[in-house]
Amino acid sequence: KRPMNAFMVWAKDERRKILQAFPDMHNSNISKILGSRWKSMSNQEKQPYYEEQARLSKIHLEKYPNYK
Rank of each mutant, 00 (worst) to 15 (best):
K1N: 13
K1G: 11
R2G: 12
R2I: 14
R2H: 15
P3T: 09
P3Y: 11
M4P: 12
M4T: 12
M4R: 10
M4D: 13
M4E: 13
N5G: 07
N5D: 14
N5S: 15
A6T: 02
A6W: 01
A6Q: 03
A6I: 00
F7S: 01
M8G: 14
M8S: 14
V9Q: 04
V9F: 06
V9R: 04
W10D: 02
A11R: 02
A11I: 05
A11S: 08
A11G: 04
K12S: 10
K12T: 11
E14T: 09
E14R: 05
E14Y: 08
R15Y: 10
R15A: 08
R15H: 05
R15D: 01
R15G: 10
R16A: 13
R16Y: 08
R16D: 12
R16W: 06
K17C: 02
K17E: 04
I18S: 01
I18V: 06
I18Y: 05
L19C: 08
Q20M: 10
A21W: 11
A21H: 11
A21L: 08
D24T: 04
D24Q: 07
M25R: 01
M25W: 02
M25L: 07
H26N: 15
H26K: 14
H26A: 13
N27M: 14
N27W: 14
N27E: 15
S28G: 10
S28M: 05
S28T: 10
S28Y: 05
S28F: 10
S28L: 07
N29S: 13
N29P: 01
N29Q: 15
N29T: 14
I30L: 12
I30Q: 00
I30D: 02
I30S: 00
S31H: 08
S31N: 14
S31M: 15
S31P: 05
K32R: 09
I33C: 02
L34R: 00
L34A: 00
G35W: 15
G35P: 03
S36T: 14
W38G: 00
W38H: 00
K39W: 11
K39R: 13
S40W: 11
S40I: 06
S40Q: 10
S40F: 11
M41F: 02
M41Y: 01
M41A: 03
M41D: 02
S42H: 05
Q44K: 12
Q44S: 10
E45L: 06
E45Y: 00
K46I: 01
K46N: 03
P48Y: 07
P48R: 04
Y49I: 03
Y49F: 11
Y49Q: 12
Y50C: 04
E51T: 04
E51G: 04
E52V: 05
E52Q: 06
Q53Y: 14
Q53C: 15
Q53K: 04
Q53G: 08
A54R: 11
A54K: 08
R55F: 03
R55T: 06
L56K: 08
S57H: 14
S57Y: 09
K58Y: 07
I59C: 13
I59P: 10
I59W: 09
H60N: 14
H60L: 04
H60K: 09
H60T: 13
L61T: 12
L61A: 14
E62I: 05
E62R: 05
E62F: 01
E62N: 10
K63H: 11
Y64T: 12
Y64A: 14
Y64F: 12
Y64M: 14
P65M: 10
P65T: 09
N66D: 13
N66L: 09
Y67V: 15
Y67C: 13
K68Y: 08
